[in-house]
Computed example of a mutant assay.
Amino acid sequence: MSAFSLEPEQTAWAQELRVLAATRLRPLAERGEPGRVNRPLVAELGQLGLLEALFADKEGPRSGALGLCLLRESLARSCTEAETALALQGLGAHPVHAHGTVRQREEWLAPAREGRAVAAFALSEPDAGSDAAALTLRAERDGASGWRLTGEKRWISNAPEADFATVFARTTQDAGARGVTAFLVPTDRPGLGGEPLDMLSPHPIGTLTFDGVRVTEDDVLGEVDRGFRVAMTTLNRFRPSVGAFAVGMAQAALDATLAHTSQRRAFGGVLSDLQSVSHQVAEMALRTESARLMVYAAAAAYDRGDPGIARRAAMAKLLATETAQYVVDAAVQLHGARALQRGHLLEHLYREVRAPRIYEGASEVQRSIIGKELYADHADSLTTEGPSV
């Protein structure tokens, strides 16, 4: 399958998803409290089978990284709250799907897939956001088969209301990325607390505090001191689809702009008659489609197992999130003051669109990944082919 075209089934599914988002999910989103977990919305995502798509191992046009991108883009175009609820659930539960034991999967993955249990991904800390290898949440040995977790996580998805969290803690001091272990921690463990954070975007984000929270070897996801691999495989899985979320928002802003500028009368005609306006809209469409194609290409490469996945995922996230910021800002400008009014679609998108340029690796981190990979490839080519003239 070409990375630059969709099969008819995929196109039809994307349309079906947009209808479901508008008719079944948006009403639930509108009844939710901004910045808090919307459990009815999560449950409906499970009821519709959309959470299942996060963990589908089978091959097919709706599966894999490309299927996830189609899902996230389509939901974002009609209901960003539904897209966010789905993505946060996937981020928190994917490590259990990919690295969990049989017992861990039976206890937590099935409820997460059905929308009955809410998951959190607890990586970031007050002084370790983009530099994930610098995290300091301590896991101190407590007996032969256990640890006590002490410290704080911040800017955590679905915290503190999640039912369980994938928590990354330092089990070996002064070992950088090699001394981190991933734990599956139910949030009712003694000593575990937290509070919601009031963020610019209306996402359920908060803190988790650990006061000697006990975990055992049965709670380890993957291997001891190999948790950084759990984190990176999860982020690489979801980074292209963060770009899809951004593309969905850009497309929603473009759709709204086309409708507005083709009807809004000004200067003796409609806004779309003005060359400056039509050129601006053309630029918005060009950038949106370019970002979409890069996201699809990165996802298709991931599904094929191509080399250079980290670089392609970083490129897709970087281009798509920066593009969405541009497109939404341009849409606000073309709508004028009405787009600044609380409750307007573009006012909502303007607050939503800023966060993806920071989370799951800020734009600067994506550029660092791309540069590092490029120079590594260049060095390899010199080794195998000799210097070029």
Rank of each mutant, 00 (worst) to 15 (best):
S5L: 09
Q10W: 02
V19A: 11
R24D: 13
L25H: 05
R26M: 03
P27W: 00
E33F: 01
G35Q: 07
E44F: 06
G46Y: 10
G46A: 11
G46C: 11
S63R: 15
A65I: 00
L71F: 11
R72T: 10
L75S: 09
A76F: 02
T80V: 12
G92P: 04
V96P: 10
T101P: 02
A112T: 05
E114M: 09
G115C: 10
G115E: 04
V118P: 01
L123T: 05
E125K: 10
A132Y: 11
A133N: 09
R138H: 10
E140G: 02
G151E: 10
K153H: 05
K153S: 02
F164H: 06
T172Y: 01
T181K: 05
R189K: 13
L192N: 03
L197D: 07
M199C: 13
H203V: 12
L208E: 01
D211M: 03
G212I: 07
V213G: 03
V213W: 04
T216F: 08
G227Q: 04
T233S: 10
G248V: 01
A250W: 01
A253Y: 07
A256W: 05
T257F: 09
A259Y: 12
Q263R: 13
Q263G: 01
V270E: 09
V270P: 01
S276D: 13
T288C: 10
S290F: 08
Y296G: 00
A299Q: 03
A301D: 14
P307D: 15
I309G: 00
M315I: 02
Y326L: 13
V327E: 05
Q341W: 00
A355N: 10
G361K: 00
A362H: 14
S368C: 08
I370T: 07
K372Q: 13
E385Y: 14
G386M: 09
S388A: 13
